[in-house]
Design a protein around this nucleic acid. Sequence first.
DNA 1: ATGAACTCTTTAGACTTGCTACATGGACGT
DNA 2: ACGTCCATGTAGCAAGTCTAAAGAGTTCAT
Lengths: 310, 310
Amino acid sequence: MDVQRLELLRELADRGSVTAVALATHRTPSAVSQQLKVLEREAGLPLTQRKGRGLVLTDAGRALARSATDVAVSLAKATALWDEFRNQASGEVSLVTFPTAGQMLLPGVIKALGPDLVLNCADEDPELSDFPAFTAEYDIVLAHSMSGQLSWAGRGLKVVPLMTEPLDVGLPVGHPLAERAWVGPSDLIGETWIGVTDGYPFERILHAIEQEAGARLEMSQRFADLALIESFVIAGLGIALVPRYTSGGGQPGRLVLKPLRGIESERQIVALMRPDRAERLAVRTVVDALQAEAARVQQSHAAPHHGTAK
Amino acid sequence: MDVQRLELLRELADRGSVTAVALATHRTPSAVSQQLKVLEREAGLPLTQRKGRGLVLTDAGRALARSATDVAVSLAKATALWDEFRNQASGEVSLVTFPTAGQMLLPGVIKALGPDLVLNCADEDPELSDFPAFTAEYDIVLAHSMSGQLSWAGRGLKVVPLMTEPLDVGLPVGHPLAERAWVGPSDLIGETWIGVTDGYPFERILHAIEQEAGARLEMSQRFADLALIESFVIAGLGIALVPRYTSGGGQPGRLVLKPLRGIESERQIVALMRPDRAERLAVRTVVDALQAEAARVQQSHAAPHHGTAK
DNA sequence: ATGAACTCTTTAGACTTGCTACATGGACGT
DNA sequence: ACGTCCATGTAGCAAGTCTAAAGAGTTCAT
C-alpha cells in the first residue's frame, strides 16, 4: 500500500537488520519496527520472522521486497524525468571504487562534471569486502571481474560495463624478456613472481599460465597494493602481472610491460548499481562520464608508440 | 516525490478538473489544490496552468502524469502479488457495459465468481458517451468496435479482446430470403431497413453494403435499442442488422438470422482498462472470467443446428 | 551462571502532515 | 451586473509518524 513502508522492507532485504535500515534512512530503529509492523498488518500475513536476536524476511516478505524494487525504479524514473525538464543533473552522487580504477578514471570524470553535481568518492579494497553489498551504501560501485566470469549476475543489480583492461607482465628494465615484443606462458616459468593476495582475480590468470606451461610458478611475495608490487618489480626482485593502463604511474620508464599471448589476460571494469538508483539523472550522468572517460583512456593507449605506459 | 501527489496529478490528467478529481478521490477541491501546489513546488516548474475558470496541464505536467502511470502500475503489481500470497481475489470490481454484451456475458460471469469478489455492473449507451472515458470511473469497460477499427489505440489504455461477434441480417419468418442459407449485398437492396441511431458502428457495414451493391438502402426507422429493432423486424416492418449471439433472446423462433457474405460483418467486443487497475488481482480474475465466458458463448454458437438463436 | 552487549519491540508524548470548513478571487453565461 | 462555477487561500482539527526511554529476548564472555 504505502510506498515508504515498502521501501523500508526493501532496505531490510538489502541490509538485513532493522538498526542498519534505521541508520541508513536517518530514523530510529523504533520507527522502522513500527512501520514494518503496520505493513505486516496491512498485508495480513507475516513478512518477517525473528531469528536469534536479528530479523529475517519470510518468503512472502522477500517477494514483496522484490516488487518494491520495481516501484522504486518507476518512481526514480519519474523524478529523473522531471529533473530533465528542469535543469541539468544536480545533487550528490556517492561512489566506491577499488584503487586502480579510481586512479585511472575519477580525476577525468570529476573535471568533466559540472559544478552542480557533487561526486563523493571513496575507495575500498576489492577483496576484503563484498563489493555488491556496497550498492546499498553507495550509488555507484566500481568493481572488476575477469572476462566471462560474471560474478554478480542475478542479485537484481544493474551492471554497466566500462572497459576491459589488459593485464600485462611487468618486468624491470634490463630483464632478458624486456627486448621481446610479447611473452607467452612458457617464457614465464622459472621466473620469480610477485603475486597478489589470495582471492584476487589475477590469481586465476596465474593458474592459467601454470596450466598452459605445465609447471608451477615460483611465488616469492604476495601483496594487495599495486604500487608496492611494482616497486618490487622495479627493484629486480621478481616479475608480476599488472594492469596495463594503471601501472607505472609513479615511475615511468623504469617498468617494462609485455603483453601476454596464449592466454586471455584481461579484466572487466564495471559499474554496479541498485536498479532504482541507476535511474536517477545525476547517477546516469556520472555513469555516462565514466564510460566516456574509460573510452578515452582505452583509446589513448591503443595509439601506437608511447613507450611502456602513460 | 510522493506517490499520492503523483496519483492526483494523473487523475487530473484523466478527468480534467480539480473538482472532478476531488469527487473521485473523496476529498475536497481545496485538498487537491493544495497537494498539487506542493507537488509543483517540489518539481520546481509549473505543472498546471489556468485556462478560463478551469485548469490544464503543462507539457511537463502531462509528462509527469504519464510516468505516474508507471508508478501506479508497479504499485498495483505489488499489491496484486501479496493478494496472491494471502487469499484468492477479493474486493469490489466495477464494470460498465453496453446492453447486449452485458446480457450475453455478465450472468455467466457473476455465477462463476466466488462470493468474496463483488462485481458491480452498470450499463451505458455506447454511442451517447465516450466509452474510454469511463475507465476513469470503472475498473472494466466493455466496449465494441468494428473489426480493424481500433478506435481506442494509444490513450495508454489496456485493451483485452474478448470475442468477435458476427452481425447477421435479421428477417421475419416467412420472408422470401428466409429460405436462403446466406445473403449477399445485392439481395438486400429494395428491402425496407430498420436502422440504428446515427454513429453506431453498424452504420459502417450498412454503408459497405450500399457501396458493394451500388444502390442506397431504404431506411425507414432508426433506433438505438436492439429489442425494439427486433420487434419491428418480427412485425414485418423491415429487416435489420443484428448481432448473432444476442438477438432473439425474448422471442425465439420468430426471428430468422442469415449470415451476410461478401462483406466483413462483425464487431469486436473488448475490455478496456486503465493499466494500473488492470493489474489488480480481483480485476484480472474478472477479466479471465469474461474471456472464458466469451469463449463459451462463441463455442456454443459454433456448434451446428440450434435453429436461429439461443 | 551471571552480566554486558546487542537487537528488536513497546509505550507515551511531541511533532508533522493532510484534511475539512469556510471565505476569497476570477471567468463565464445570462 | 448578477449568479454560477471553478480554483485557491486560511484556520483549525484529526491522523499519522517520529523520538525518547524502557522492556524483553539472545548471544557471548567472564
